[in-house]
Design a protein around this nucleic acid. Structure first.
Lengths: 165, 165
DNA sequence: GTTATTGCAAACCATTTGCAAGTGT
DNA sequence: ACACTTGCAAATGGTTTGCAATAAC
């Protein structure tokens, strides 16, 4: 897998965001920069609540309000930095869409965990089929539902996230 | 396309629902029957609001409350009669999952329209890839985003649903 | 200096839920 | 009779928004 080669990150996420904002006559504020940096500081999936926690848990003056986080995520979506992955329990889950190779997800119905997988053939097939119908594809979202390996082994059953509430 | 052959509808949706309900110690009430019949009276995608309208527009005494519709849709989902297709504008869109061949969707970003397509090879490929990772697949959801044929022709541009508000 | 942006709190809105009255088996 | 269901209205909860103060360019 030469996924790493696909990274091709010539411009930092913050720069990419700035570029997008200019085209819209908008501004790269301190708050937006803080959010982009926090979001791209690791590759995990996250929801808005988790991000707000990460940001408000800081003891420096880099706190950002919840409303601004929502507004920024939506702008980063339009900018092509992020994409919505799934919506397991009523809240939108996000992941990096910039500098991260294309992939899809398996969603375990037992534990709620998301697993990534990548396959070029699927993408090629999707492109072929949809373009044959005159559709100009820009992206796709594929979620496979079922039971993950860990949850299939009764003795080592994972805790359901839902039960942790 | 021998999709029709795949219909294989030996049992009516209402019967199928009853069967599911018994296994759960639940009852096929008059309201649930009304809802299943209305839902399966045509093949279009629908959201809860549209269904509630269809049901409350009736002049016979087959009206059902919104709460009951929500409860029934969720039960029909578990029963395998319906599935959630997408969530274009914050509201869940449903479609038949029983007696209707497996397929995926193209979502036009310009007009918001959903288009169905079917391809066995994709399903086979998905099965192969996910099972190789120990995942026991039960279903999947594939949405391809882009621009539909009609919206690609500027002169005959479709109206954006979003602009109709 | 203008115009976009932030933070707060209130508003939104699809969906869920508690409860008393009603209904299926 | 005994659950299970319904309908209503109220609650929920993630997300959006109006507005006055603030900051980017």
């Amino acid at each position: 897998m030469s996924d790493i080669a696909a990274l091709d990150k010539t411009v930092s996420p913050v720069e990419k965001f700035r570029e997008y904002l200019v085209t819209k006559g908008q501004r790269l504020t301190r708050e937006r920069e803080i959010i982009v940096e926090e979001v791209f500081s690791d590759h995990e999936h996250f929801d808005t609540d988790q991000l707000v926690d990460r940001l408000s848990g800081r003891n420096d003056k880099r706190r950002v309000s919840r409303a601004t986080v929502y507004r920024a995520l939506s702008a980063m979506d339009e900018a092509g930095l992020l994409r919505k992955v799934a919506r397991p329990n009523g809240r939108e889950v996000w992941e990096h869409d910039y500098g991260y190779p294309q992939h899809d997800h398996m969603v375990c119905s037992a534990c709620g965990e998301l697993f990534e997988f990548h396959n070029d053939e699927i993408s090629r097939l999707i492109e072929k089929i949809t373009s044959a119908q005159g559709f100009l594809r820009t992206s796709h979202r594929l979620e496979v539902y079922g039971t993950c390996e860990a949850c299939r082994r009764p003795q080592k059953r994972r805790l359901r996230k839902l039960d942790l509430i």
